[in-house]
Nucleic acid binder design. Structure first.
Lengths: 176, 176
DNA sequence: GCTTGACATGTAATTTCTTACATGTAATAA
DNA sequence: TTATTACATGTAAGAAATTACATGTCAAGC
């Protein structure tokens, strides 16, 4: 019963603070899902696995049958081992970008519509990330890593938004 | 037997030109795998599925038992339908970026080492994409879409490489 | 009292993806 | 001639991910 990427991510979150499965699900939905999408139907079985492996323990119980989990010392050691000793997969999977390879199959009009949509999404997310970044007090060492992570999102969305605009311009140049 | 993202990607490649499974595998490894990783063990069964669905046909046979496939008219219609009428999944999956969320668990030294590595990878790929871009004749309408796709890679790697350098600087500032 | 929505946790079925197994051909270089 | 590499195609087993099924609590507003 080896622990995978999702298990280590959950472990990392539970080292930071104890959480219920529901809270972990929301944390994923709000932030981690941008780089590692997952559903509650995967999280709950994974928590059971982590508990069976002694990497987390149930630290409490709340209303509506909620259970709070916390990482054990072994769990902390395991997530550190994962970070230090294992090589992350290089792979990136994004259907939006995949489709760009097949835009030539579409009439230029539709290709441009697609690229405008993609650009719009990137700009939306950019605004969202910038709003989050604005709430992180600058220069606070405790939030340094959060700021670094959100900055990656900002630069990514910014670059891709600009790329989409540039791509539309390229297509327009040729249309005229 | 519904066709998924991989099936449509194969279809898209086979519309462009007829290929063997081996050639499709290499095309993925060299370019599409950057946005949609896959293995030959997934490609061969998928080709059988596409053929059974009448979306591709075997158009020839070569040495060493190789089979060449081409998209049928239905296949072309299907890939166009997919591009026009279906909404691409928004999700992006990247373990490298996931790990950034857990860098705070590591000593600053190791976090910086990680970020330097990430930066190095991005710069490597940037150089690779720029080399490819240099081989595409500028202003050639036939290669317009290829140029647009590779530009996305260039901007992405460039932005992420700069982000990694910035992140290292941020951590160094606090260390001193 | 009733309805809606957020909270909360799970399982089941299916599909997709990865890793490993398995086999064989043709060309090239030592 | 023999070893290595690139070509070439598949299957099997297992892990991971998605979608659907399934149930129930608590609070707020009507």
């Amino acid at each position: 019963m080896a622990i995978g990427t999702l298990g280590h991510a959950l472990l990392g979150l539970l080292v930071q603070r104890e959480c219920t499965g529901y809270e972990l699900t929301r944390t994923f939905d709000e932030s981690l899902a941008h780089v590692w999408p997952t559903k509650h139907s995967q999280i709950y079985p994974e928590l059971a696995k982590l508990q069976a492996a002694g990497l987390i323990r149930q630290s409490g119980a709340g209303p509506r049958g909620s259970k709070t989990y916390a990482a054990t010392a072994e769990g902390l050691a395991e997530v550190r081992r994962w970070m230090r000793d294992t090589i992350p997969s290089e792979s990136v999977r994004t259907e939006r970008m995949l489709r760009v390879f097949f835009l030539w199959l579409m009439p230029p009009e539709e290709a441009m519509t697609y690229l405008r949509e993609v650009g719009g999404r990137h700009r939306e997310r950019l605004a969202h990330y910038e709003a989050i970044a604005a709430t992180i007090p600058a220069g606070d060492p405790a939030n340094r890593m959060s700021r670094i992570a959100i900055e990656a999102g900002i630069r990514f969305e910014s670059a891709m938004g600009e790329w989409a605009s540039w791509a539309v311009d390229e297509l327009e140049k040729c249309a005229s």
